[in-house]
Amino acid sequence: MADLLNVQGLETQFRTREGIVHAVNGVSFSLKEGETLGIVGESGCGKSVTVMSMLRLIPMPPGKVTAGTAMYQGKDLLKMSNEEMRQVRGAQIAMIFQDPMTSFNPVLTIGRQVAEPLETHMGMSRKQAYARVAEMLSLVGIPNAKERLNDYPHQFSGGMRQRVMIAMALTCNPQILIADEPTTALDVTIQAQIVDLVKRLRDELGMAIIWITHDLGIVAGLAERVNVMYAGYVIETAQVKPLYANPQHPYTIGLLGSLPRVDQRERRRLISIEGLPPVLYQKPTLCPFAPRCVYKVERCMQENPPLMQVGPDHFAACWVDTATGRMRA
């Protein structure tokens, strides 16, 4: 299937008092129609900044997208005029955020806020929009949707607010839904409700999804393809099954090893990754994971490895073949 979205060589920097932070350092990936892509990584790895740069939601200054393209329907999102970008954002590419409390305006009713994209993008009247909103709210499982249109965000619980946010994102039938840690603030049974809801809506509406998370568990049950990020790079990418069954990058191996499993009987010692992720005041010249890596060789300290093919549709940025200990290139 054709690529819906194609990002090449995306780089984003932030100017801070301590120096320039290189948050994203040349990220490339593509998203097919109806595909669910998981972007996984720890705090500060650049996973949110990647999609925020793509949607031009990075505050500039201090942020700056310094290189790259993001092609969507034959046009580069990064070169569009603000007006064109507004047509895309919310209508064709919609986003939901981690914190359902701070993402809403507390002094506007839910009805007003969810109706807004319909009024701006679809040119609906207030009345039409409200009818559609009520429909959307019941679609995402909010009881008595019609009566709740005049309620304010604080009158909803965390799980319900997240449902409202999903409804708002989906009002204009977007082709791409970007979800930035949407379940991190929620309890596990509510998280299961939301994930279940998104899966159901995906099957019904057929949109593509980019799901950003630090939780390798959620991605396993949801995504078809996974990008693992570290220090502003995609360090491994593959279809979900080969990635979990046969991780190639030492960081991915470490992450999976550090997770206990709820279905696991035997008690093993967790593999911990020693040290800390780097703060990137310079664009790395060596492999950014090398200081924490147990497989490292001399070359890792000299040259940053590019993504190399390690299997069918499976790429990893590591000089060492971790299974055999041999060099890849």
Partner: peptide, 24 residues
């Protein structure tokens, strides 16, 4: 609660039957 916990293994996730609690 146990069935709601995601497992970092796509094969195991596929086979799972999730029991989703209603309400809050």
């Amino acid at each position: 609660l146990l069935s709601a916990v995601p497992i970092p293994d796509p094969v195991a996730e596929e086979k799972r039957r999730r029991q989703i609690l209603q309400g809050e």
